[in-house]
Design a protein around this nucleic acid. Structure first.
Lengths: 225, 225
DNA sequence: ACCGCGGGTAAAAAGACGGTTACCAGGGTT
DNA sequence: AACCCTGGTAACCGTCTTTTTACCCGCGGT
């Protein structure tokens, strides 16, 4: 974890550096807005601790410039000003938390952890079998960065196959997992969908990643070999 | 946006309800821990405001149980206790922010907004998907610097879609987060509003940024690709 | 080689799903 | 009171998915 600290007071800066390093963070130090802007843009960091009362360039302006540059790291603001207007202004500008000096270092640390936890929280879970990538939150399939549209049931089938990549799945098992209702289908729905998937997964009809295991069912194999 | 408020003091509860409703949130109210636990598990909400000093079940315990149940909504803790140990305890248990009573309502609102934004993966209040920009503080939509007026519910829908840009949202999910009442709507409100939004977002009817994912729901896609 | 079974393919049939429009009700405004 | 705006409902229609049906192919065993 890399944390950028923008703080002009040498004593506090040193203390922040010490505390953050102790719990295992990598720390960059900047003493004013200009330096802060530079660091933020230069080194990709996971979080920023920003003092609002800075020489040269105000904290608010700094936040705006970072956000305009599409830098989305969480920002924890540190300040002596406790008026609610200041807090609201900072938060609306794109800060993520606001701590009034003087503060207890333990609280700062706890808030940092919380921010990092949140920021890391929205990672998509996707099934990755190069060159295929199935994003389960967006329901998007990409083949070598090329997007392919899937219908509802095509998606369900592929998801189930990729979840159990490598192992053969019987038609029976597949229908049971794709369909809510109990009714057994005596038709060849699965075959039909497998065909459609194969066509989409492998337009050139070389080696579709869905193998048929005769007498058993189907298996998704990652084509890497 | 659906917010759950767990607060035993009737006066504060009413005030929270009023303020949150005014800015267009859907609000669930719970008076104690047991009720809070139930609501949090029953209705999918986007955020929780939780008073720590509750009868029946303590706030800390409530947080633990929610988190154990894999409920990941942001939690803003409200309390009279200002000791840093309490704050750290709540944050480490899984809360996301901590506000000491008495507080200014504007600050609470700003912090809520910040939490919601961050939980959805955005870093500031302008939801920017060129050429669309939705300003959450002013509730204004601009398309290429051209202002477009939105009605209340149009805004709610668009905000929710853009906050979760890329992922398909089911009609069910949308009604639950936009509407207060319990009754499930079997009508096609969402379709109608989607149509109205599309008309405003894309008057020439070229490529409206709201895609329909058949059998699933709708998805906001940034047109730039 | 021949037969049978399991699977593949194509195309039609069914039907679910969403788009669209028109219309109504309520609230606020003039 | 008449009007406008907004939110919500209902009905109709087109289309895209899903499902079925029918038929073909090829492998393996006899």
């Amino acid at each position: 974890m890399r944390v950028l600290v923008v703080e002009d007071d040498p004593a506090l800066r040193a203390q922040l550096h010490k505390s953050l390093t102790e719990i295992g963070y990598v720390v960059d130090l900047a003493v004013d807005g200009a330096e802060g802007l530079y660091f933020g843009q230069q080194y990709p960091c996971d979080l920023v601790v920003l003092d609002m009362g800075l020489p040269k360039k105000g904290g608010l302006e700094l936040i705006r410039e970072w956000r305009q540059a599409e830098l989305s790291f969480p920002i924890l603001v540190l300040t002596a000003r406790s008026a609610w207007q200041d807090k609201v202004a900072a938060l609306e500008m794109g800060a993520d938390d606001y701590l009034v000096k003087p503060f207890v270092m333990q609280e700062l640390m706890a808030r940092l952890q919380t921010l990092l936890r949140r920021a890391a929280g929205w990672s998509h879970d996707q099934l990755n079998c190069p060159p295929y990538r199935l994003d389960r939150t967006t329901r998007c399939l990409t083949i070598d960065d090329r997007q392919v549209g899937l219908t509802d049931y095509e998606y369900r089938l592929l998801e189930y196959l990729m979840l159990h990549a490598g192992q053969p799945l019987s038609r029976r098992e597949l229908t049971e997992h794709l369909y809510d209702d109990e009714q057994q289908r005596d038709s060849n729905v699965i075959e039909v969908f497998v065909r459609r998937l194969r066509a989409k997964l492998d337009p050139q009809a070389n080696r579709a990643p869905i193998e048929t295991v005769r007498g058993v069912g189907y298996r998704f194999v990652t084509p890497r070999i």
